[in-house]
Amino acid sequence: MSLIDSISLPRRLRLPRVDGLIQWIVPLTIIAIWQVASVTGFVPSRVLPAPSDVLLAGWKLLVSGELVRNIWVSFWRASIGFLIGGSIGFAFGLANGLSQLSAKLTDTTLQMVRNVPHLALIPLVILWFGIDESAKLFLVALGVFFPIYLNTLHGIRTVDPQLIEMGRIYGMTDGELFHRVIFPGALPSIFVGIRFALGIMWLTLIVAETIAASSGLGYMAMQAREFMLIDVVVLSILIYALLGKLADSASRVLERATLSWHPAFQKR
């Protein structure tokens, strides 16, 4: 008790704004050290350009409109692919979690497909779709499908059977039982799936765009490599980091909003 008090007390006293800034101390320090190392010539600019040069390159691309266009293309591919793969994964997770028949019918097949690394399909996908949008969407959707499928299925299977019995006793219809008991019970697990899927979404997209694309962030980085524009290459990598962070934060906000009942998400 006293230990818990001593932990939670300073947290309450601390200003929330300062709390939000703390997480940025480490990345900003790294950038500062990097800048100093580049300016003093400790790191040659052929190996790693100074952060200021990267910013400058970013500014030039921003002015020319190239950066926004490429980010938008990548963002669009990522979200559409995520939506398609995510909804199919969610649908299969629901079906196989709720129906024994459906699980018997499809689960083995899905588990077999899951064990094929989806990036190994790239040559096949290029043969099928060329380097069209559909190729990237297909790969992202395939990559996103499995974490969401597996975690939705797991979430539904592990809903407390005592709660389900309670719902039945209190006369809930199947629909009510689903939206009042099963779905909210599976939600924490579904969110785990979503966060895994977001990671896989960026990974797949970057690989797909660097191998076969004519636009997007990955394409921008590959173009820059051809012209030895190392500052643009580094810029693309940093933007990936920021976009990844953004996606993760978005899922956290969603998690906080929908799982506020969960002790782990309650504000002290």
């Binding site: 719902g167 009042r180 008991v181």
Partner: peptide, 30 residues
């Protein structure tokens, strides 16, 4: 009617994602 007979278990079996009042409303059945 199903509402005429109720059971109370050793575990409370409350829905953790529903506020106390909505948990009680569950008992109203239809």
């Amino acid at each position: 009617q199903p509402e005429d007979i109720r059971v109370m278990f050793q575990e409370p079996r409350l829905l953790p994602w529903a506020r106390v009042l909505s948990n009680v409303e569950v008992g109203l059945g239809r």
